[in-house]
Design a protein around this nucleic acid. Structure first.
Lengths: 351, 351
DNA sequence: ATGAAAGCGCTAACAG
DNA sequence: CTGTTAGCGCTTTCAT
């Protein structure tokens, strides 16, 4: 939404930094030559170029990236939109994306939209024209909004599948299978799933995967479901209150935060992990090795998601400038990234 | 530094989104009228404005924020530069800044510069012309680089004092005093300080404050110093190896991460917290209540730092457009924000 | 190898 | 109230 902008009585808003014209005048050359001296070094006499760069440096000239981006579309900027920077889930995604961007000479801008679809839309609207590519991590925007964005800049979505937009998702089913195998190997026969938010796509995937895993070995494993709960420590704590140990000795939580809260809730009730119940989390976020007992968890390929998102964007960006149009679009198939089970101290053989 | 840009064979880089001219033509009005319909609703006939906005919406027109920012300087964007988004220290700073920015109608862009001064410089160079204000959280840039930035956009630095640039810092001395009082009240008489990186400004402040606090009560408290250590869990773990309980029963760590690592190191050696030694952290980061025992810590006004940084920026931005120039600069005095001691389970009365 | 000129998309003075 | 004009700072043809 375009809120009416305030009046701006003083047009000379920012103090003057030297422009390309200032440098040109100081060097006695045309502005275009200065421009070339920076961006097309080959096309200007070496000696002149050198002189220009020196005086430019002396004057403290810095090309205005905004003005440069307007005609060219090149800002060397990438945006990563996350629902909540302080959710450790995003840590490694950010780290991975950051690193991939940096090593390709790009700067990654992270926009935190505090779980608000509206904030997300305005963040995207405000930044999309500034960046060369856009990665949406667990976006809340509508499919159509995403498509609109994808039409303007190379876009990739994480942890969501969308027919027309390249997407990267965690292999939830595979992860659940790993967890089930682990618990079964430990002798557990009933597994309780602590459900996350109903609206969550990942929650659905994980629960269905668990059901399927159970079907495949009908005689050995039974599953039940508790929830939904908020995907937070508080949610897990609540879950612990309604948990009855009689119904089984193994739990898989929707995510690590819930698992940690759940263990804390159990502790308060005098139930001991892993002696009385084994707990498996999901994602392997920062903090899952801080809690006690340290959490056994299905590690999501978080970092990989981040790097790969950026690499997809870079590929798309490069193909835009070299290829013959939108033909060379990246694969629209969602890529499934594998999980890895991290066994720590919250799981143990069934009594 | 300006790396030579690659050639760009295809000038029509991005697919066409409707421009203001398209809307103008479709409505049979001048482009300036369309512009006004959006940014100066009062100055165009209500009926015309309505019609324009409708067709614009129908065409999917979105003003290009980049093109708008070039002549006006208004992008509704603020940048927050942090050394490492995944360091929980920055969580509440980001949250606070985010929230203040959002409620003022701005979008906050977070740039993670992974502890690299060079990456920080290029991030600042690339974004400064796009944003209306810049907050540097624990920057590694040189004072002169900071000043250069501050000359171009309202700038505020966090946790660093710089004569000419507005700055916000945690009241380290006050925090240390609170910790000392707490430990003394519990009967501890010797306090060991686990030092952080020598280059850290905050580390110096904290250690000196501790020395001073000890001087003020010469007969009751003695302090000693161990370190420097890396300000991480690993650093704390290392510290635990060289720690001798004989030398006292109370420890104040440079920060929470170190404190947590330290406790973990002690545990491995069979030393129990808080029975054998009381540990106080600093900052109250996310995770300080996840570890066990939960950490007693000096809570830094993290969130407050974030909101205040943004508020300072907004004030400066507003005064730029209304006032008579750089006279109405914000106070150059660094503002000291108070800490709050959070007593949890890692401290107990001296044996 | 360099200069001149046109324009990226939008806004803001200046006329009417 | 609305159209016309002139840029914001930079890049990129097109000339020379």
């Amino acid at each position: 939404m375009d809120a009416p902008l305030p009046e701006l009585p003083d047009p000379s808003s920012w103090p003057d930094v030297p422009t390309i014209y200032d440098v040109a005048k100081a060097c006695g050359v045309a502005p275009s030559t200065v421009s070339r001296a920076f961006s097309r070094p080959g096309r200007v006499k070496a000696e002149t170029a050198e002189r220009i760069r020196e005086t430019a440096a002396a004057m403290g000239y810095q090309a205005n990236p905004l003005a440069r981006a307007l005609p060219t579309g090149r800002s060397s900027l990438l945006a990563l939109v996350v629902a909540d920077v302080t959710n450790p889930f995003f840590f490694d995604i950010i780290r991975g994306a950051e690193q991939a961007a940096t090593s390709a000479g790009y700067t990654l801008l992270v926009a935190d939209v505090h779980e608000s679809a509206e904030a997300e839309r305005t963040a995207v609207d405000r930044t999309i024209s500034l960046v060369e590519g856009l990665a949406l991590a667990t976006t809340r925007m509508s499919n159509s909004s995403i498509r609109v964005a994808a039409k303007q800049r190379p876009t990739v979505v994480l942890n969501r599948v969308l027919p027309d937009v390249p997407s990267l998702v965690t292999d939830n089913a595979g992860g659940i299978e790993q967890a089930v195998e682990h618990l079964v190997a430990l002798g557990h026969r009933t597994i309780t799933y602590l459900a996350g938010p109903e609206a969550s796509w990942a929650d659905g995937m994980r629960w269905r995967a668990l059901l399927k895993a159970a079907e495949q070995q009908t005689d050995t494993v039974r599953v039940r479901r508790l929830g939904p709960f908020s995907p937070t420590q508080a949610g897990g704590f609540t879950a612990a209150e309604s948990y009855t140990t009689s119904a089984g000795s193994a739990v898989i939580a929707y995510n690590d935060l819930m698992a940690i809260g759940f263990m804390r809730g159990l502790a308060r009730r005098g139930v001991e992990v892993p002696r009385d119940v084994s707990v498996v989390g999901f994602d392997n976020i920062f903090g899952s090795d801080l809690c006690s007992p340290q959490l056994t968890t299905v590690g999501s390929p978080l970092r990989h998601l981040g790097t790969m998102a950026v690499e997809l964007l870079l590929t798309a960006i490069r193909s835009r400038s070299t290829d013959t149009g939108p033909a060379a679009a990246p694969p629209a198939r969602p890529s499934l990234l594998p999980t890895q089970l991290i066994v720590r101290a919250s799981t143990a053989p069934a009594a």
